[in-house]
Lab assay of single mutants.
Amino acid sequence: QIFVKTLTGKTITLEVEPSDTIENVKAKIQDKEGIPPDQQRLIFAGKQLEDGRTLSDYNIQKESTLHLVL
Rank of each mutant, 00 (worst) to 15 (best):
Q1R: 14
Q1G: 05
Q1A: 09
I2G: 01
I2F: 04
I2W: 02
I2L: 08
I2D: 01
I2E: 00
I2R: 01
I2S: 01
I2A: 02
F3H: 09
F3G: 02
V4N: 01
V4C: 04
V4D: 01
V4I: 14
V4L: 05
K5S: 08
K5Y: 07
K5H: 10
K5T: 14
T6N: 06
T6I: 12
T6C: 12
T6F: 15
T6V: 10
L7D: 11
L7E: 14
L7P: 13
L7I: 11
T8A: 12
G9K: 04
G9A: 04
G9Y: 04
K10H: 12
K10G: 08
K10N: 08
K10I: 09
K10Q: 09
T11P: 03
T11H: 07
T11G: 03
T11K: 07
T11L: 13
I12M: 06
I12K: 01
I12W: 06
I12V: 06
I12G: 00
T13P: 06
T13A: 09
T13Q: 08
L14A: 02
L14S: 01
L14K: 00
L14C: 04
L14W: 01
L14F: 05
L14Y: 02
L14V: 09
L14P: 00
E15Q: 12
E15Y: 14
E15A: 10
E15L: 12
V16S: 04
V16Q: 02
E17D: 13
E17W: 10
E17Y: 11
E17N: 13
E17I: 10
P18I: 12
P18L: 14
P18F: 15
P18A: 10
S19H: 12
S19D: 12
S19V: 06
S19Y: 12
S19Q: 10
S19W: 12
D20M: 10
D20F: 07
D20T: 09
T21R: 08
T21Y: 08
T21H: 04
T21M: 07
T21P: 05
I22K: 00
I22F: 03
I22R: 00
I22G: 02
I22S: 02
E23M: 15
E23R: 15
E23Q: 12
E23Y: 15
E23S: 14
E23F: 15
E23P: 03
E23C: 14
N24F: 15
N24T: 13
N24W: 12
N24Q: 14
V25A: 02
V25Y: 02
V25F: 03
V25H: 00
K26A: 02
K26E: 01
K26C: 02
K26W: 03
K26V: 02
K26L: 04
K26R: 05
A27V: 11
A27S: 11
A27M: 15
A27G: 09
K28M: 14
K28V: 04
K28D: 02
K28P: 00
K28Y: 07
I29E: 00
I29S: 01
I29T: 01
I29R: 00
I29G: 00
Q30E: 10
Q30Y: 15
Q30D: 05
Q30F: 15
Q30H: 14
Q30K: 11
Q30R: 14
Q30P: 02
Q30I: 03
D31F: 12
D31Q: 13
K32R: 10
K32W: 06
K32Y: 08
K32L: 11
E33I: 14
E33A: 10
E33T: 13
E33V: 14
G34R: 06
G34H: 07
G34K: 06
G34F: 04
G34E: 04
G34P: 02
I35C: 06
I35G: 02
I35V: 08
I35S: 04
I35M: 05
I35A: 04
I35D: 02
I35H: 09
P36W: 06
P36M: 06
P36L: 07
P36V: 06
P36T: 06
P36A: 10
P37R: 14
P37A: 15
P37E: 07
P37M: 15
P37Q: 11
D38L: 10
D38E: 12
D38H: 15
D38W: 13
D38N: 11
D38A: 15
D38K: 11
Q39Y: 09
Q39T: 08
Q40R: 02
Q40A: 05
R41E: 08
R41L: 11
L42D: 00
L42Y: 03
L42A: 00
I43K: 06
I43R: 06
I43C: 15
I43Q: 07
I43D: 04
I43W: 15
F44Y: 15
F44T: 02
F44R: 03
A45T: 05
A45C: 14
A45R: 13
A45K: 15
G46P: 01
G46W: 05
G46A: 04
G46D: 06
K47G: 06
K47Y: 10
K47R: 11
K47P: 01
K47M: 14
K47A: 09
Q48R: 08
Q48I: 13
Q48V: 15
L49D: 00
L49W: 01
L49F: 02
L49E: 00
L49H: 00
E50M: 10
E50L: 09
E50D: 09
E50N: 07
E50T: 06
E50S: 07
E50W: 06
E50Y: 07
E50R: 07
D51F: 04
D51K: 04
D51R: 04
D51Y: 05
D51W: 04
D51I: 05
D51S: 08
D51T: 06
G52Y: 11
G52R: 09
G52L: 08
G52M: 09
G52P: 07
R53W: 11
R53L: 12
T54D: 03
T54K: 10
T54I: 06
T54V: 06
T54Q: 07
T54G: 03
T54W: 04
L55M: 06
L55D: 00
L55C: 06
L55K: 00
L55I: 10
L55F: 03
L55W: 03
L55E: 00
L55Q: 00
S56Q: 15
S56H: 11
S56W: 09
S56E: 12
D57Y: 14
D57G: 04
D57E: 11
D57N: 05
D57V: 04
D57K: 03
Y58C: 05
Y58L: 05
Y58W: 03
Y58A: 03
Y58E: 03
N59W: 05
N59C: 11
N59Y: 07
I60P: 01
I60S: 01
I60Q: 01
Q61Y: 09
Q61S: 11
Q61L: 11
Q61W: 08
Q61F: 09
Q61D: 09
K62P: 15
K62I: 11
K62Y: 15
K62M: 15
K62C: 13
E63P: 03
E63N: 13
E63G: 14
E63L: 12
E63T: 07
E63C: 15
E63Y: 14
S64M: 11
S64N: 08
S64F: 09
S64Q: 08
S64G: 06
S64W: 05
S64T: 07
S64R: 04
T65S: 05
T65A: 04
T65V: 14
L66I: 12
H67T: 14
H67F: 14
H67P: 01
H67S: 09
L68W: 02
L68F: 03
L68C: 03
L68E: 01
V69A: 08
V69E: 11
V69Y: 14
V69S: 09
V69L: 12
L70P: 09
L70H: 11
L70G: 08
